[in-house]
Design a protein around this nucleic acid. Structure first.
Lengths: 137, 137
DNA sequence: TTAATAATAGTAACGATTACCAATATTAAT
DNA sequence: ATTAATATTGGTAATCGTTACTATTATTAA
């Protein structure tokens, strides 16, 4: 009845590669990477394993607005900033977010607060340079 | 060469209905609503107009993680809280978000900060009650 | 009116993700 | 090692939200 997870070669390689990357790849980016070592792996397998690994807390799933899901093999506490232009997500080492008057703000809503996400959105140096280069006037 | 927008019946009804709703509907929820008044309207038209209206600043597009895009006809400054269980988004009247040590946090990143989003995630009273009702042990 | 052209309805296409299923590989027990 | 139980796989089809396409229609300014 109980299902114990099995450490397949695929799962291991996916985990290893994700931890190796300092970026926060999408499933298909990681898929391309992993194919270097396991050419016959399926994209579905990558998705399935990322889901499992995130469920068991071995990796983080970054569910940011926009489009694709991204994944993070680094579990140490840190923040992220997302480039509004190219979509990349980078780490920001820093203190945990301060909680403030959030409680009072939410007092009247009847909601039970689960999480308070602070999302930094900006333009990465590369895109910034590119934008400036393309300026007409 | 220049394209001036035209206030079609469809656009008007979409705008009116969105403003009437205190919820933050998805495109297809609004589509169902609008069909009560314009039975032959197309879903594509709803998407197109929502995009246009958001682009011109007449409505807000709520691009939260998870799944569908949601829209808000209320432009007065307010925050949102999203139910992690049913996905609904509700208003929180309150002060604008405080900026804090964000600048210093971002100092080393090289990013140009565009926006700092605070997202409140919780469980709405209805889902909370339902969860408690379903508790086994 | 008329001419110029946004905008429409309807439908096909798209991209990210999930579901399906027969075949395979891992694990625990013999 | 051998086995039995079953989690996992590869491959592909299906799903879902959204966008693109296109011929037709409706709005606007002249």
């Amino acid at each position: 009845m109980e299902s114990r997870p099995r450490m397949t070669k695929q799962r291991q390689v996916i985990l290893e590669e994700l931890r190796m990357m300092r970026s926060h790849p999408t499933a298909d980016e990681l898929y391309e990477r992993v194919r270097g070592r396991l050419p016959r792996i399926s994209l579905g397998t990558v998705y399935r394993n990322l889901e499992k690994l995130a469920g068991s807390g071995m990796i983080r799933k970054l569910d940011y607005p926009g489009s694709q899901m991204r994944f993070d093999g680094d579990l140490h506490g840190h923040q992220h900033i997302r480039c509004i232009s190219c979509g990349r997500i980078e780490d920001i080492d820093g203190a945990p977010e301060p909680t403030r008057c959030d409680r009072e703000l939410l007092a009247g809503s009847g909601y039970r607060l689960v999480e308070r996400r602070v999302e930094y959105v900006g333009i990465c140096p590369e895109c910034d340079a590119m934008e400036k280069g393309n300026q007409k006037s």
